[in-house]
Simulated assay, not measured.
Amino acid sequence: MRVRTKICGITRVEDAVVAAQAGADAIGLVFYAKSPRAVSVAQAQKIVAALPPFVTVVGLFVNAARSEVNAVLDSVPLDVLQFHGDETPAECEAFSRPYFRALRMQPGLDIAALSAQYSGAQGVLLDAWVPGVHGGTGERFDWARIPENLAKPLILAGGLNADNVGQAVRQVQPWAVDVSGGVEVSPGIKDAEKIRKFLYAVHMNNTQLCDGSL
């Protein structure tokens, strides 16, 4: 199985282009005003317009009103929605888009049971839990805590970078990996070389998975 890649928190056209040219499967645009990686509709439109074909555009929301999400969808051609707040299954499924449900690895949380509630999700994204912070923490959680019986494909996030993503691919074997801070020089400003090194590390481990050497 090939592990897919998403570069999240894109705020600049040039970073989106670098990610696409380096082989990213998806980019993430953050529509959450409190995030240092938040983008406006105008920024998002320019970024999406610069992308080549076959790069999935994911829009990230945190407890947004339905009207707010719809306003973005009316202006930006998002392929997938990603919900990082307290959204219920019904709230996630209220839009004509596939969606991911992000779950933070809070101690004592039954991740398998919670993920099963989101039967309409394309996948479940697991991220580190930091009180009051909805993703993009740069913190890694203990991968041994990931349950084996997740109801949906796993997207692994939280503290990933070029130095540890190979280990993540080998140990967790997720459907996809999601990185933001691990390829930045500052919040929202990506580093082209870090992006390339991250995607190369995933590619090399994908090659080993496919040829059976892992």
Results as ranks from 00 to 15, higher is better:
200 Y>N: 14
180 S>W: 14
143 W>I: 08
146 I>M: 08
105 M>Y: 13
15 D>P: 07
148 E>L: 15
24 A>V: 02
81 L>I: 04
202 V>M: 08
201 A>R: 09
16 A>K: 07
129 W>C: 00
183 V>I: 07
155 I>M: 01
9 G>T: 13
30 V>E: 07
73 L>I: 07
60 L>M: 13
106 Q>K: 11
204 M>H: 13
32 Y>E: 01
39 V>M: 14
146 I>T: 11
15 D>W: 03
98 P>A: 10
39 V>D: 02
124 V>I: 08
120 G>S: 11
118 Y>A: 06
41 V>K: 15
15 D>T: 04
12 R>T: 13
7 I>N: 13
47 I>Y: 03
143 W>Q: 05
33 A>P: 01
112 A>T: 07
106 Q>E: 15
127 D>I: 06
28 G>L: 09
36 P>L: 07
139 E>P: 02
96 S>H: 10
22 A>Y: 11
132 G>W: 07
75 S>V: 10
206 N>Q: 14
185 V>M: 02
165 V>I: 06
185 V>Q: 07
165 V>C: 01
30 V>D: 12
142 D>M: 05
33 A>H: 12
104 R>G: 09
132 G>K: 10
84 H>T: 06
176 A>L: 00
103 L>P: 12
38 A>P: 11
17 V>H: 05
186 S>C: 09
108 G>P: 13
160 L>H: 08
178 D>P: 13
109 L>W: 00
94 A>D: 03
133 V>P: 01
29 L>E: 00
168 A>R: 15
114 L>Y: 05
40 S>E: 09
182 G>D: 12
3 V>R: 04
186 S>V: 14
55 V>Y: 06
146 I>E: 14
79 D>K: 09
30 V>I: 14
27 I>L: 06
154 L>R: 00
113 A>N: 13
101 R>M: 02
14 E>C: 13
161 N>E: 12
18 V>C: 09
211 D>W: 08
144 A>D: 11
46 K>G: 10
170 R>D: 12
191 D>A: 15
55 V>N: 08
198 F>V: 01
64 A>Q: 15
56 T>Y: 00
156 L>N: 07
111 I>E: 03
33 A>D: 15
180 S>Q: 05
74 D>W: 04
84 H>D: 04
95 F>Q: 11
17 V>N: 00
186 S>T: 10
167 Q>F: 02
29 L>V: 09
95 F>N: 06
140 R>I: 08
7 I>A: 10
194 K>Q: 08
92 C>K: 03
12 R>M: 15
177 V>N: 03
204 M>E: 13
67 S>M: 15
63 N>G: 01
43 Q>A: 14
36 P>Q: 06
159 G>D: 06
54 F>H: 14
89 P>N: 01
140 R>G: 04
25 D>Q: 07
85 G>Q: 08
41 V>Q: 14
190 K>L: 15
59 G>F: 10
161 N>S: 12
53 P>F: 06
19 A>R: 05
149 N>F: 05
85 G>I: 02
39 V>P: 08
143 W>C: 04
105 M>H: 02
195 I>K: 13
161 N>M: 05
1 M>E: 10
163 D>Y: 12
54 F>K: 04
126 L>H: 08
70 N>F: 05
122 Q>F: 04
